[in-house]
Amino acid sequence: MSLAKDKPYFAQPSDYEDDVHAWAFEQAQLLRLGRFSEVDLPNVIEELESLGREVQELISGAYRDLIAALLEWEADPSSRTRENATLILKARFTIEDEEKEARSLREDAKRTVEAVYPDAVHLAMAATGLPRGCFPIECPYELAFLRDLDALPGSLPDGE
């Protein structure tokens, strides 16, 4: 006796190695239908872990870029441009959006800031040409300041 469920849902399932996009949607459909025996479990696990790492890297990168831009803003008055203000705001939007979706990363943001601060300083050094000694040893910005969409250390020069 053959049951319809014995027949694979996808006659020619997508291969993870060849088309991860189609594969992902097929895996989601199989999970929705409860066809767990057809799910490519090892690769689903790998992709879920990868997704978590990507979100962490996105938030870390946004904090790094934000802090670097703020350090540059303070250290080099010529960097106080609308373009740099826009970069700061975009980094904050990314942080806000991603932390809404990943509360555990929001709760761990202080550790993230501490981890990315040395790289942010290197970026600020490269942008300004200033030596390491011109920047604080530890991040001078509180999380509330980093997350505040309107906060800038100083203001745009007149006429910018």
Results as ranks from 00 to 15, higher is better:
Ile67Ala: 01
Ala127Pro: 00
Ile45Met: 13
Glu107Gly: 05
Glu142Tyr: 03
Ala62Thr: 01
Asp76Phe: 03
Gly154Ser: 14
Pro153Lys: 11
Ala69Gly: 08
Ala127Val: 00
Ala75Thr: 07
Leu152Trp: 12
Leu87Ala: 14
Ile45Arg: 13
Gly34Leu: 07
Ala68Arg: 06
Phe93Thr: 10
Val116Arg: 12
Glu142Thr: 09
Phe36Cys: 06
Glu38Cys: 07
Leu66Tyr: 00
Glu99Val: 12
Leu70Asn: 04
Thr81Val: 10
Cys134Ile: 00
Asp119Thr: 02
Val121Ile: 08
Glu47Gln: 14
Leu51His: 10
Gly133Ile: 05
Gly52Leu: 04
Glu54Trp: 02
Ser78Arg: 14
Leu105His: 03
Asp65Glu: 09
Pro42Phe: 08
Leu87Ser: 11
Ser79Phe: 04
Pro131Trp: 07
Gly52Thr: 02
Leu41Gly: 02
Glu38Arg: 05
Leu149Tyr: 05
Arg103Pro: 03
Leu70Tyr: 08
Leu58Trp: 02
Pro131Arg: 14
Asp150Phe: 11
Val121Asp: 00
Arg106Pro: 01
Asp76Gly: 01
Arg64Gly: 04
Val39Leu: 07
Tyr63Glu: 11
Val44Met: 10
Phe36Ile: 06
Gln56Ala: 12
Gln56Met: 07
Leu105Arg: 08
Ile45Lys: 11
Glu83His: 12
Met125Asn: 02
Leu105Ala: 03
Arg106Ala: 15
Phe93Asp: 14
Cys134Ala: 13
Ala144Arg: 10
Ala124His: 08
Asp76Met: 10
Trp73Glu: 07
Glu49Thr: 03
Ala115Leu: 10
Leu58Pro: 00
Phe135Leu: 04
Ala75Gln: 13
Arg132Thr: 03
Leu146Ser: 05
Ala120Cys: 07
Leu58Ser: 15
Arg82Phe: 09
Ala109Trp: 04
Ile59Gln: 06
Ala69Trp: 07
Ala102Ile: 01
Lys110Gly: 15
Arg92Phe: 05
Leu152Lys: 15
Leu41Ser: 03
Thr86Gly: 13
Arg35Phe: 07
Thr94Phe: 04
Asp108Leu: 05
Ala124Met: 09
Leu48Tyr: 09
Ile95Gly: 03
Ile88Pro: 03
Ser60Asp: 15
Glu98Met: 15
Glu96Pro: 00
Asp119Ile: 00
Leu123Glu: 08
Glu96Arg: 14
Glu57Ile: 03
Ile88Phe: 05
Arg53Trp: 09
Cys134Asn: 13
Glu138Trp: 08
Ile45Trp: 04
Asp150Arg: 14
Ala144Asn: 09
Pro42Trp: 10
